[in-house]
């Protein structure tokens, strides 16, 4: 499961249904976040950690729980960062 989580994206998307009478131009894709805590279950011991300095900056000691967020509607955004 952990190796799958490396290639797996925590940003999901869908295209809202469109009616010919919708007043606004389509937003296109809607994005939503599915952060790693949804998949981890009870955290097993011995998982990889960030260095203390990195952990204080990122907000978590655990690499598996780190989930960078950026506005997915901005151009070039919407991808998960490492």
């Amino acid at each position: 499961m952990n190796s799958q989580m490396q290639i797996f994206s925590h940003v999901k998307s869908y295209v809202p249904p469109r009616s010919p009478f919708d007043p606004c131009p389509p937003i296109g894709t809607k994005y939503y976040s599915t952060p790693p805590n949804l998949y981890l279950g009870f955290q097993p011991p011995g998982l990889p950690q960030f260095s203390p300095a990195d952990a204080l900056r990122k907000g978590t000691l655990w690499k598996v729980l780190y989930d960078y967020y950026d506005n997915p509607y901005r151009k070039g955004a919407g991808k998960t960062h490492g």
């Binding site: 952060p35 805590n37 955290q43 978590t60």
Partner: peptide
């Protein structure tokens, strides 16, 4: 704000573990 958001992720994880316990 990203730091605070990450803490929400960690807190949610810990509450889910509490349910498992």
């Amino acid at each position: 704000l990203r730091f605070l958001r990450e803490r929400e992720v960690v807190h949610s994880q810990r509450f889910r573990e509490a349910v498992e316990m």
